[in-house]
């Protein structure tokens, strides 16, 4: 879908968010997950005409509310006060998730612990003994949107790849991720093939050495 590119430096968080924002098609209905994905909204342009969905029952979500605009009845999925934009609508929880599960959202952007080469996603539970599990809307979002994109660091603190052959963390959704944005590279996933669209601060060859899976290079 795109020509292979490379940059000298790794991407910082804002640069990643800016690239994700630019990749969102004009007029799309989008759900941005909690954490890094939320930052994408700061780089969407008015000309794109993107409508943001929040799982707790709203389309047309605006920026975070400040000062007198803070309203305890108007919050996002992270329970942060937000604002409404012209054209906004409210609906109950079953409708909100039917909208998601029914394939009406164009793109959803999520964080992840791991993604497999088949597009399996792990982002809800470390599986660590004693950890209290919480899932929220993660499983619904993962498999609901037409396209599920992930933003994550490519390596763990100890340097292991989070893009893996098979998940070691508990599954959130199977075969659902089609693109991964990381500080070091951007990947497209399709039918078990992982194609590197760009590298940042690392060459394709070095990347191929460090990752435990086969990589294709975008033309």
């Amino acid at each position: 879908m795109s020509t292979f590119t490379t940059t000298e430096a790794a991407l910082n968080r804002d640069e990643m968010a800016k690239i994700v924002a630019a990749d969102i098609p004009a007029g799309a209905f989008v759900n941005l997950g909690i954490g890094q994905p939320t930052n994408v909204s700061n780089f969407l342009t008015a000309q794109q005409g993107v409508t943001l969905h929040t799982e707790n029952g709203m389309l047309g979500m605006g920026p975070v509310a400040t000062g007198d605009d803070i309203d305890e009845d108007l919050i996002n999925a992270g329970k942060i006060p937000v604002t409404e934009l012209p054209g906004a609508s409210y609906f109950h929880h079953a409708d909100s998730f039917a909208m998601m599960r029914g394939g009406h959202l164009d793109v959803c952007v999520l964080g992840a612990f791991q993604v497999s080469e088949a597009g399996d996603l792990a982002n809800w539970h470390t599986g660590a003994p004693g950890a209290i599990p919480a899932v929220g809307g993660a499983m619904d979002l993962a498999i609901g949107a037409k396209a599920t994109w992930v933003m994550m660091g490519l390596f763990t603190k100890t340097g292991e790849s989070k893009l893996v052959e098979a998940l070691s963390y508990p599954v959130t959704g199977l075969g659902c991720v089609s693109r991964i944005y990381t500080e070091s590279a951007i990947f497209d996933l399709s039918g078990g093939t992982v194609t590197v669209r760009s590298t940042h601060g690392i060459s394709f060859e070095e990347l191929a050495q460090r990752l435990p899976i086969d990589l294709a290079k975008a033309a």
Binding site: E55, H92, H93, A94, S96, F97, A98, M100, R101, V135, G136, G137, A138, M139, D140, I143, G144, P170, V171, T172, G173, L174
Partner: peptide
């Protein structure tokens, strides 16, 4: 999962005895 929670509640009010959902499959 949140959407299954919502749909299970909706189903109870709508007289549905159960439903097949893709959310959570394989987890």
């Amino acid at each position: 999962p949140q959407g299954n929670l919502a749909e299970r509640i909706r189903a109870a009010g709508a007289g549905i005895g159960g439903f097949f959902t893709p959310t959570g499959y394989g987890t």
